[in-house]
Measured scan of single mutants.
Amino acid sequence: EEDDHMEFCRVCKDGGELLCCDACPSSYHLHCLNPPLPEIPNGEWLCPRCTCP
């Protein structure tokens, strides 16, 4: 299965362990989110761009 998510964080543009949005190709480091997440959430996760009205 091919993964179309970005291979770098949308905020800092660095690679590493990234959290991928379930609705778009964006990826983020947990510490780059505002507010930062302490751990990878269970289940579906939507990035700030997808949850913003």
Rank of each mutant, 00 (worst) to 15 (best):
S26C: 08
C32V: 00
E2H: 05
D22I: 10
S27G: 07
R10Q: 08
H31E: 13
S27F: 15
W45E: 03
G16A: 02
D4W: 11
D14V: 07
G43T: 07
C24D: 01
R49K: 14
P53W: 15
C20D: 15
C50H: 11
E17P: 05
V11I: 13
N34D: 05
P25D: 14
R49I: 05
G43N: 12
D3C: 01
S27W: 07
S26M: 08
C50M: 01
G16H: 06
E39V: 12
N34R: 10
H29M: 00
C20W: 10
L30W: 06
L33R: 02
S27T: 09
G15V: 09
G15M: 07
A23K: 14
E44R: 08
D4L: 14
P53H: 11
C20K: 11
M6K: 15
H29T: 00
C50W: 03
Y28H: 04
F8T: 12
L30K: 10
H5N: 14
C32E: 05
L37Q: 10
N42V: 09
H31A: 09
E2F: 15
P41T: 11
H29K: 00
N42F: 05
L33K: 01
R49Y: 09
D14C: 05
L19C: 04
G15Q: 13
L19W: 05
T51R: 10
D3Q: 14
D22V: 09
E17N: 09
E44P: 09
I40L: 15
G16N: 04
N42Q: 06
E17C: 06
N42P: 15
D14T: 07
R49M: 12
L19S: 03
P48I: 05
S27K: 05
I40R: 08
D3T: 15
R10L: 09
I40V: 10
C52F: 07
P36F: 09
C21Q: 02
C9K: 04
A23F: 01
C47S: 02
H5R: 09
R10T: 12
P53F: 08
P38Y: 15
P36K: 14
C21W: 00
S27M: 10
P25S: 12
C24K: 04
S26E: 12
C12A: 00
P38K: 15
E17Y: 05
E44N: 09
D14Q: 06
T51D: 15
L30G: 11
M6R: 10
N34V: 09
E44A: 08
C12S: 00
P48C: 12
G43E: 11
Y28C: 02
A23L: 13
C24T: 03
R49H: 06
T51S: 09
L18P: 00
D3L: 13
G16T: 11
A23G: 11
W45H: 03
L19G: 02
I40N: 13
W45N: 03
P41Y: 10
V11H: 12
G16L: 05
W45K: 03
C50S: 01
H31T: 07
C50R: 02
P38H: 11
E2S: 09
D4E: 08
N42I: 04
E44Q: 13
K13E: 15
C52T: 13
L37F: 06
C20E: 10
G43W: 05
P35N: 07
P35C: 04
H29F: 01
W45G: 03
L18A: 01
P53V: 02
Y28V: 04
P48N: 08
D4H: 15
C20I: 13
G15Y: 03
L33E: 03
C32I: 00
P41K: 11
C52Y: 05
C32Q: 01
M6A: 13
P41C: 08
P53L: 14
I40K: 08
L33P: 03
P36A: 14
D3P: 09
E2V: 08
F8S: 08
P36G: 07
L30P: 14
F8W: 04
E7L: 08
E1P: 01
R10D: 08
L18D: 00
N34Q: 12
A23D: 09
D22T: 12
L33Y: 03
P35E: 12
H31K: 10
V11R: 08
K13L: 06
P35R: 05
H5G: 05
A23H: 14
L18H: 15
D22C: 10
D14W: 06
E7A: 10
C9G: 02
L30S: 12
H29W: 00
L30R: 11
C12I: 02
P35T: 07
L18W: 00
L18S: 01
H31W: 04
L33H: 01
G15S: 11
N34I: 08
T51A: 09
D14L: 07
C24H: 14
C32T: 02
E1W: 03
C9V: 00
P38V: 00
P25F: 08
D14M: 10
T51H: 06
R49C: 12
C24N: 00
E39F: 06
Y28L: 04
E7V: 13
A23T: 13
C24W: 00
H29E: 01
P38R: 02
P38S: 08
M6S: 06
C50A: 02
R49Q: 15
R49F: 12
D4F: 15
K13G: 11
N34C: 09
S27C: 10
C32Y: 01
C32A: 01
V11K: 14
N34F: 13
L19R: 09
G16F: 09
Y28E: 01
Y28P: 02
V11Q: 11
L33A: 07
E7D: 12
R10H: 10
D14S: 07
C12M: 00
P53S: 07
K13I: 02
E7P: 04
P36E: 06
N34S: 14
F8I: 04
H29Q: 01
N42W: 07
L46W: 07
S26H: 11
H29A: 00
M6V: 09
E2D: 02
L19E: 04
G16Q: 02
R49G: 14
P35L: 04
P41R: 11
L30F: 09
H5S: 06
L18Y: 15
P36R: 10
P41A: 07
C12V: 01
N42G: 14
G16V: 04
N42H: 10
C32G: 00
T51E: 10
L19N: 02
L19Q: 07
D22M: 13
E1K: 13
R10P: 04
R49L: 08
W45P: 03
H29V: 00
H29S: 01
G43S: 11
E7M: 04
E39C: 04
E7R: 10
D22L: 10
D22K: 14
E44C: 10
H5D: 07
F8M: 08
C32D: 03
H5A: 05
G15R: 14
L19Y: 14
H31F: 15
Y28G: 03
E44H: 13
D14R: 07
H31C: 04
C50Y: 02
H31R: 13
P38L: 15
C12F: 01
G15T: 12
C20R: 05
E1N: 15
R10F: 15
E2C: 04
L19K: 04
E1T: 02
M6N: 14
A23P: 03
L37W: 08
V11T: 10
H5K: 12
E1M: 01
D22F: 07
L18C: 05
C50E: 05
L33G: 03
P48H: 12
D3Y: 15
T51K: 13
C32N: 04
N34W: 06
L46D: 02
E7T: 02
C9A: 01
H31P: 04
R10M: 08
